[in-house]
Nucleic acid binder design. Structure first.
Length: 359
DNA sequence: TCTGGGGTCCTAGGACCC
DNA sequence: TCTGGGGTCCTAGGACCC
């Protein structure tokens, strides 16, 4: 039985990885995103804390980041470097022997059985040791949320940043969360918060007190009741250490300048199909459905999808299918973005995993 | 807000079948 | 056919997260 859940989240992960290999950047405003050129199209992936003091944050356009903080060091995203650093961190977490559920490059849940947290200081001791171990092994700082379930642990982390810990349980849930806006919850964003506000629900406590049926009618039979559970901090899902198996795979590109020529668009779809096919081969997976995404200038986005006649990883089949879907749109406006995503067939049964998929 | 790229899951309407 | 009800699949789009 799991007594506690820890949520480990690296502090300014991408910026920290860049600073780690270029120590002269320590303490400076560092902004990573897009091509690294702050005058080109792209948004900020991560900003160092020094850059955040100028108002630069994840998701804002690089051009705006340049205006807010002209002295910042701008760098392109280097995915292989972040993959490698992430693997170092996850290895430290797994070395504890506790189940680890990876959420992304820089986050994971750990399940602590009762005995591991039975000491006089509870799970804080385990969290502190983890922070020391991660720092010693990787040079990276992290924050840890401590909860009686995954939802509360995940939310708690934000209150512990940077380099700290915070405990959020049934006991202090209402004191900490009750008066906050519902979008403080993991799973409720700006759009849903606005819909809730229109229903007269503007705090977590009000959300928790709303009958599930009212929420189901307004927000859907699955989502409505789920939002109510979020409001109460209820989450029964286990820490699941099963290795992640992707269900889809794709690539998309926002072009430096809009594509206006049909031949250019045709060629660009060929490039995307080639990247997707290469990944399918590399990961030994098969596509059974293809989704074409087109963003016409200035920002009107359409998708068209088609089930493939048979599972494929053939570049030409993907390109031809995507071009056919584009032709169906019958729209000659300039193109800002093209994307090809595939949905994958179930992977071949792993033989020596020792995992029971039913469990 | 001149607005990235990689994902996941849910919803709703229509087709199709019995 | 002036057509009931239920189930499943397909497709487009929405919302969220890192």
């Amino acid at each position: 039985v799991t007594a506690w859940v820890l949520h480990v989240d690296l502090d300014e992960f991408i910026a920290a990885v860049e600073v780690r290999r270029r120590p002269e950047l320590a303490g400076l405003p560092v902004v990573v995103g897009g091509s690294g050129d702050p005058t080109a199209r792209g948004v900020v992936a991560t900003a160092s804390y020094a850059a955040r003091e100028h108002g630069v944050g994840s998701g804002i356009p690089m051009r705006r980041a340049l205006r807010l903080c002209p002295e910042a060091v701008f760098l392109p995203a280097d995915h292989p470097a972040y993959d490698a650093a992430s693997a170092e961190v996850m290895a430290v977490l797994r070395a504890t022997g506790h189940p680890v559920q990876v959420l992304g490059w820089d986050e994971a849940f750990l399940g602590l059985p009762g005995v591991a947290a039975a000491g006089p200081d509870g799970p804080e001791r385990v969290a502190e040791q983890l922070q020391r171990d991660v720092l010693a092994a990787t040079g990276l700082h992290c924050s840890v949320g401590i909860g009686d379930n995954k939802l509360r642990a995940k939310i708690a982390t934000g209150f512990g940043k940077p380099r700290g810990r915070f405990r959020l349980t049934e006991e202090n849930w209402w004191a900490v969360m009750g008066d906050r806006s519902p979008d403080a919850l993991w799973g409720i964003g700006a759009r849903t918060a606005r819909k809730l506000a229109a229903l007269g629900i503007s705090t977590v406590a009000e959300l928790a007190a709303t009958p599930a049926q009212d929420l189901a009618e307004a927000l859907g039979p699955t989502m409505g009741p789920w939002y109510r559970r979020l409001g109460r901090g209820v989450d029964t899902s286990p820490v699941d250490p099963t290795p992640y198996v992707p269900r889809g795979l794709g690539h998309e590109t926002t072009y430096p300048t809009d594509l206006t020529d049909a031949a250019e668009v045709t060629a660009a779809l060929g490039v995307l199909a080639g990247r997707v096919a290469a990944d399918l081969v590399e990961q030994d997976r098969w596509a059974e459905r293809l989704v074409l995404k087109v963003r016409f200038a200035p920002f009107d986005t359409r998708t068209r999808s088609r089930r493939l006649a048979e599972p494929t990883r053939d570049e030409e089949v993907l390109a031809t299918t995507a071009r056919g879907l584009l032709a169906d749109l019958d729209d000659a406006r300039p193109v800002r973005l093209l994307g090809i995503r595939t949905e994958l067939t179930a992977p071949p049964k792993a033989e020596n995993q020792g995992k029971d998929p039913q469990k």
